[in-house]
């Protein structure tokens, strides 16, 4: 295990300068996610245009992995359909948890999260934003926790 595998440059960069950081007012959908173990709290906001995620932002606070993951996620899902977002979510889930997972090309930058797999205690940090996005897209009002 090498720390540089976890904290790749693209992750450090997204942590330092998170993209699409901020809130969106209703009628945007939103959901709150919380990781009680480390205190990470984030809210994901999404605007739907028909079936397409036309805008998505997040705010809150968390560790580098959760902030970078959320930042990269917003870039990746903006302009995609709901089904495409779900598909990405499944691919990310595999990437974070399965040693033999292929890294499909549509992951793009998100492939940088592959190093998290070697640090099981940090998988929840990387997946929190995705659970939260899913809750937002489902219009769920209940806060998401990783527990």
């Amino acid at each position: 295990m090498d720390l540089k595998d976890l904290y790749r440059d693209v992750i450090l960069d997204h942590n330092k300068r998170p993209r699409n950081f901020g809130r969106l007012e209703p009628p945007a959908f939103s959901a709150r996610g919380h990781n009680p173990l480390c205190g990470d709290q984030l809210t994901v906001y999404a605007v739907m245009d028909g079936d397409v995620v036309s805008d998505v932002r997040f705010d809150g606070s968390g560790c580098a992995i959760s902030v970078a993951s959320a930042s990269m996620m917003t870039e990746a899902v903006k302009g995609r359909t709901r089904a495409e977002a779900e598909h990405l979510y499944a691919a990310i889930h595999d990437l974070l948890t399965r040693a033999d997972a292929p890294s499909p090309p549509e992951l793009g930058k998100l492939a940088a999260l592959g190093g998290v797999r070697e640090f099981p205690a940090r998988v929840k940090c990387a997946s929190l934003c995705w659970h939260t996005l899913q809750a937002a897209l489902q219009g769920a009002a209940v806060p998401v926790t990783t527990e």
């Binding site: 480390c38 205190g39 640090f119 205690a121």
Partner: peptide, 23 residues
């Protein structure tokens, strides 16, 4: 400044140093 405690915990663990992070 600029480093979340959870990241400090992981980096220290890689150096063999066990601390607690969180609330």
């Amino acid at each position: 400044d600029g480093v979340h405690p959870h990241d400090i915990g992981t980096i220290l663990d890689q150096a063999g140093v066990a601390i607690r992070t969180g609330h």
